[in-house]
Write a protein that binds this DNA or RNA. Structure first.
Lengths: 200, 200
DNA sequence: GACCAAACGGAACCTCGTTCCGCTAACGAT
DNA sequence: ATCGTTAGCGGAACGAGGTTCCGTTTGGTC
């Protein structure tokens, strides 16, 4: 077989390529922390000590690089959903806590929220990845809360995720704007008034 | 005196300059409707049939042009505040209606909301203009509602405006995302629970 | 050690905001 | 009506950013 010595099943990447990919991810993470997610690709290349072409060989687009950098955290957030549902007193509390997690994540990554929207000039893949990963989890929490009669119905998980994401935009450099508080209000508004009839 | 014939008090602009300014505003408005607020300056220049330099003579920056185009509507929105307060059954209702007005405005202008954030690469003036114009009105409505004991305290008009603006981002090309609904939820969350003590 | 495709680096390209500057023509003075 | 001044104009040029291209380097194989 043409399987490389290191190799698992199929075609293994060349050693320097693997090394570069990791170097790039580390460099990108560092630059994102230092300069925000909107940092120029060239800066990341410089930090990693590679040419710009190398970045594009590994990540077809800036958005893919961002996805790769945050993938683990997004997945961790997704996995926290069921756990919170199990450990929280009520589903609405679980939902609120889970959203807090998400907000903390977004708010601490400079500029990430801003780039989460569809058609943000080629950032569709980012938007899609985040939403595809997290919306199902969110839906599960919403459904649980709805079944418990704690929230109004009619709001989709997609909408809620987008709303929360939007509220987090620009929170990082503006001391006058507290995204957490607004998200809290939104989640509070989601709560079904006691006099309102359940849908189910 | 060096006062022009047409002139009011001081130096009057040349006739062609005034004409071009109006042409530019019209062209910009048309292009914004057709292609969104993010349309390239060159497109606007082309639509108006002038060179790009001409745009910059009249509007030092893209943001200033956008401000000029929407100035009337923003001011109309600001003026609607007191009127709504007078004509609505309760201050919270007035606030909700006024915010609806603002949301309708934002949602119908493709991409406007997205450009309303601070440091959106040189769009600070836009952010400042919108907030300076509308936040005081919003504050008046919030205060009235707070005095009536209808809303929680602690949220600034600035924060609310930014939150609402953020929620409107990207609402225009995404049928799955209804900004109005989310803003409605937010305003609902603002309502003070009946069992909560007033602050004042 | 030689060969070859995978990977690399970075110049080049495109778009977009903004600036610069030589030319045009509006307008007040005569 | 003509002239001179200069506001105003057009669009080339610049810089920044994402992405592509291609000649060169190099890891892996025989």
């Amino acid at each position: 077989m043409s399987d490389g010595g290191t190799g698992r099943a199929a075609r293994t990447k060349r050693a320097d390529a693997q090394r570069n990919k990791k170097t790039l991810l580390d460099a990108a993470a560092a630059v994102f922390i230092a300069s925000g997610v909107e940092a120029p690709v060239r800066d990341i290349a410089a930090e990693a000590g590679v040419g710009t072409g190398t970045i594009y060989r590994h990540f077809p687009t800036r958005a893919e690089l961002i996805i790769a950098v945050y993938q683990h955290q997004v997945e961790a957030c997704a996995q926290a959903g069921p756990a919170l549902l199990a450990s929280s007193p009520t589903p609405h509390t679980a939902l609120a806590r889970w959203i807090d997690l998400f907000v903390d994540f977004l708010v601490t990554k400079h500029g990430l929220a801003a780039v989460l929207q569809p058609d943000s000039s080629g950032f569709d893949s980012l938007h899609t990845y985040f939403l595809d990963t997290l919306a199902p989890v969110c839906a599960q929490l919403i459904d649980a809360a709805a079944e418990a009669g704690e929230v109004r119905s009619g709001l989709t998980a997609y909408e809620l995720m987008r709303g929360v994401g939007n509220l987090c935009i620009g929170a990082e450099h503006d001391p006058r704007y507290d995204a957490r508080r607004l998200v809290g209000l939104l989640v509070e508004g989601l709560r079904r008034p006691h006099d309102e009839a359940p849908t189910a």
